[in-house]
Design a protein around this nucleic acid. Sequence first.
DNA 1: TTGTGTTTACGAAAATATTCGTAGGTTTGT
DNA 2: ACAAACCTACGAATATTTTCGTAAACACAA
Lengths: 136, 136
Amino acid sequence: MYELIRRKNMAEQIKPTESELEILNILWDKGPSTVRDVHEVLEQSKDAGYTTTLKLMQIMYEKKLLKRDATTKSHVYTANVSQEKTQGQLVKKFIDSVFNGSASQLVMQALGNHKTNKKELDEIRKYLEEMEKRSK
Amino acid sequence: MYELIRRKNMAEQIKPTESELEILNILWDKGPSTVRDVHEVLEQSKDAGYTTTLKLMQIMYEKKLLKRDATTKSHVYTANVSQEKTQGQLVKKFIDSVFNGSASQLVMQALGNHKTNKKELDEIRKYLEEMEKRSK
DNA sequence: TTGTGTTTACGAAAATATTCGTAGGTTTGT
DNA sequence: ACAAACCTACGAATATTTTCGTAAACACAA
């Protein structure tokens, strides 16, 4: 007989859908918000009803992507996953599926096609130097 | 009365789904292949039936993501979109939806989380120098 | 010829993601 | 108190993506 073991440190897969990611982005940007707050931002870029946003956020709550405070009349939602960690996972998955695991290929593609401006390039160069220093 | 104008230079959106991208990757790697060829590679990493692969490739053909030579008994398929262009579009979309348009943020996230090795870092540094030279 | 194996085409089921209508509760202003 | 405005919950319709069963055509060997 077998038994499923649930490991504590099993890195949890954060897998927001397209729409869910839009909402996470808003919450990361604005901090704790009501459904209406989020919906007002979303409305600017897409055209969906209020209850659609509500439903999405409820689903995300069930999936533990969001926390919420339900003591107030209008529930206040907060992201329950960190932006860094989520971005990290998304980038990893993206690199695997699009660039067969090669981060440097992604980097060069990103730098090449996007007319990255001087300031951004400087940041990156500084960052590279930092990495090199640390690895010595 | 209105009339839809189809512009010649309207950059066509290449929007493969997850599964379609897997198939494109195989075709870019192996070159022209039959459904069976593709399916044998696919089988190694996932578990799906032959007709599933077939159907996917037929759909991709309808969408013009693939070309095919149907003169032979086993049709031979080829990618009909370039790897570079497709990757470019995917990266752009990814940067927009995950990093709010900032390529440098993506780059730093990619370099930071992925223990990129020395060789890769060197490539990137060289690439940056090239860019700088050209922009002078 | 007949059977075995391989192929394409096609429709539809299954799985997943998105959207929205409606019901019922709470708050607010008059 | 009453109506208008706003909120949540929830089921279900839509849309999209993935999977597969089945039929028909063809090749090849016995």
